[in-house]
């Protein structure tokens, strides 16, 4: 009787995988809206924990306590996230780019981390057009063949970073400021020389109470365009940097328990909207959201 209310969708998210031999993960393949298992394949979300390659001086106190034993060593930190907390991937922030470190040094640090964990690695620059353009291609070269997911790639610097990623077998994060059409534009540009099977969209995230509704609707609209309207340029997985945004809110800073809920609820709602890869900072949030799925 309810069959008549079911929809079929024309679009499908491209199959996407990253990681080196033996630790690859698969994403994509959805031909239905998020959590619409009753209408098709709705995908399985992936959770990464975020770490940084230099002292996380500006991180919330509650987080620094948890990672106090490993914060001096990105390798140990990444291992803890993967083995102790069971993250599906590690998200490495290259905060060391703010310091006087050479691109070669930064890149070899990344390689060390990638080689030390049994889950895929996501590597993220500062979002600074010039600095990222100088460092990320070198990271791509140093980690050739390790199948990283590298970002952010912006409309201002996509060429150089994407080319390096292509040459060395990595995937990229196309980052745009909260807008469906900008996401489409950047993917069209990338699609001219880069396989969209290896692109993930980051349409920027805001935390619960700080503009979550904008990220929610942008994400939902991107996924609707891809699945319902069969827009080929948007048929890529979506990534959301939840932890970073949540752990600078006053709610999280004043009360870590509330922070965990804030992070979990932000993550859950973005999953409902269509995000596939969720970046978190607190391992408890990871546990909580996972236990629900």
């Amino acid at each position: 009787m309810l069959e008549k209310f079911l929809d079929k969708y024309p679009g499908m998210i491209r199959e996407f995988s990253f990681g080196a031999n033996g630790n690859q993960v698969m994403l994509g393949g959805q031909n239905a809206l998020p959590f619409h298992d009753f209408e098709g394949a709705s995908g399985k979300p992936m959770f990464a924990l975020e770490i940084t390659d230099s002292k996380p001086a500006d991180w919330a106190g509650a987080l620094r306590e948890i990672y106090a034993d490993v914060e001096a060593s990105p390798v140990a930190w990444a291992q803890k996230c993967a083995t102790v907390y069971g993250a599906d991937a590690v998200f490495l922030n290259l905060d060391s780019m703010e310091k006087d470190l050479s691109a070669a040094e930064i890149a070899s640090g990344v390689k060390e981390v990638a080689g030390a964990i049994s889950v895929p690695l996501i590597v993220h620059g500062l979002g600074d057009k010039e600095k990222d353009e100088a460092v990320l291609p070198q990271v791509a070269a140093a980690c050739s063949g390790l199948g990283l997911l590298i970002g952010p790639v912006l409309k201002e610097n996509y060429q150089a970073i994407a080319e390096a990623a292509l040459e060395h077998g990595h995937s990229i994060i196309a980052q745009v400021p909260m807008d469906v059409n900008l996401a489409k534009d950047l993917n069209i540009k990338l699609g001219k020389f880069f396989p969209l099977e290896r692109v993930v969209i980051d349409s920027l995230t805001s935390a619960l109470g700080y503009g979550l509704e904008y990220s929610y609707s942008t994400t939902e609209r991107i996924r609707l365009s891809a699945v319902v309207h069969d827009d080929k340029t948007l048929q890529t997985p979506l990534i959301a940097r939840v932890g970073r945004e949540v752990w600078k809110t006053k709610e999280a800073l004043q009360n870590p328990q509330k922070g965990i809920l804030w992070e979990s609820v932000t993550a859950l709602n973005l999953l409902l909207a269509g995000d596939d890869i969720i970046i978190l900072r607190h391992p408890e949030s990871l546990k909580l959201v996972r236990s629900l799925l």
Binding site: L208, G209, E213, Y216, E251, N255, K258, L261
Partner: peptide, 13 residues
């Protein structure tokens, strides 16, 4: 705390 989370979300959405 939990109520604040829900109330904030309700307002956002």
């Amino acid at each position: 705390d939990l109520f604040q989370v829900l109330a904030t979300l309700r307002q956002d959405i």
